[in-house]
Simulated scan of single mutants.
Amino acid sequence: MAFLPHPERRPVLVAGASSGIGAATARWFAEAGYPVALAARRVDVLETLAAELRAGGAEAVAVPLDVTDDESVRTCVALAAEALGDVEIVVAGAGDLAIGLSYETSPEAFSDQVNIHLTGAFRIYRAVIGGMIDRGRGDIVFIGSDVAKRPRPWSSAYVAAKSGIDGLVTTIAMELEGTGVRAGVVRPGQTLTGMGMNLDQADTERMLNDWIKFGLARHGNFLGPEHIAQGIHAMVTMPRGAHLRELEIEAEGAVATKGNI
């Protein structure tokens, strides 16, 4: 059976759009001509970015979202659909970063990280998937992390949550087979975003030293959030009938300056 092509109009909902990868993704899609709903807790920041995008000719709205609250997630999806039409593409990327040694991390702090990164992403999935299945199409992109493949010390809760994202995406991709809805995970490597910029400096130095000890800090180059946005765009623009389920994006090491390299 032939797959119908993507519709001409594909509204996008970006969770975590107030900064970093989320903001870059919202900007990338808006500039590519997609209607975009920017969602996060910091609505004032979203409104500023949405206004900037609209001034450039894009169709963009800001909607409040707290991924730890079921009702907030459902309301966010409803508001996005009311403003732009049924959501065709969802990017589940809301999150923050807390670090600490596992044996010094409280169960409450551990649960908070899992609730934001993993359960929060699942809440978004549950809020949109019914409509996508009914329409027989849709793309859901989960923002994972390369820590799911290469865990790092000082990040036990974050590693557990992002490993859970990998398992979740693998499971639901199998369950969605034959529905026309695609789910995939994008795993960024080290990316320069606002996440983690408020961490304690002494703890950060200890963490980085442990990463070096285990060979986990190969070089000092970082991706820009726009690199991740480009990867997300590539995933959802695959033609119907093709499914790019996993994409890992890593920062390239510095190129040696010799010859014509």
Rank of each mutant, 00 (worst) to 15 (best):
T48I: 15
A55I: 04
W154T: 01
G130N: 11
A251P: 15
S145T: 11
W154R: 03
A26R: 04
L38I: 11
V181W: 04
Y34S: 07
I143T: 08
A148S: 14
G56S: 12
D134T: 13
V169E: 05
L101S: 09
I212F: 01
S18K: 05
R150A: 06
L84K: 03
S106F: 07
V169M: 13
L118V: 05
A183P: 04
E250G: 10
T68L: 02
E47Y: 12
M195N: 10
A160D: 02
Q113G: 02
A157T: 04
G57K: 13
A50G: 10
E52I: 13
Y158P: 02
E177S: 15
R126P: 00
E59Y: 09
D200T: 12
L38K: 04
D146S: 12
W154N: 06
Y103F: 11
I89N: 00
L192S: 12
R218E: 13
E31G: 06
Y34K: 02
L199C: 11
G180T: 12
R9L: 08
E252K: 14
C76H: 00
A17W: 02
V141D: 00
D210Q: 13
N198G: 15
V159S: 07
G241H: 12
D86C: 00
V87K: 00
T119V: 13
L65M: 06
D210H: 11
T191A: 11
Y125P: 00
A32I: 09
P11G: 03
R27H: 11
V255N: 06
R152L: 05
W211G: 03
W28N: 06
V87C: 01
T204E: 10
F214C: 13
I21E: 02
A78F: 01
I212N: 08
I99R: 01
T237H: 08
L199Y: 05
L176A: 15
G120H: 03
P188L: 02
A40I: 08
W154Q: 03
T68E: 10
Q230L: 14
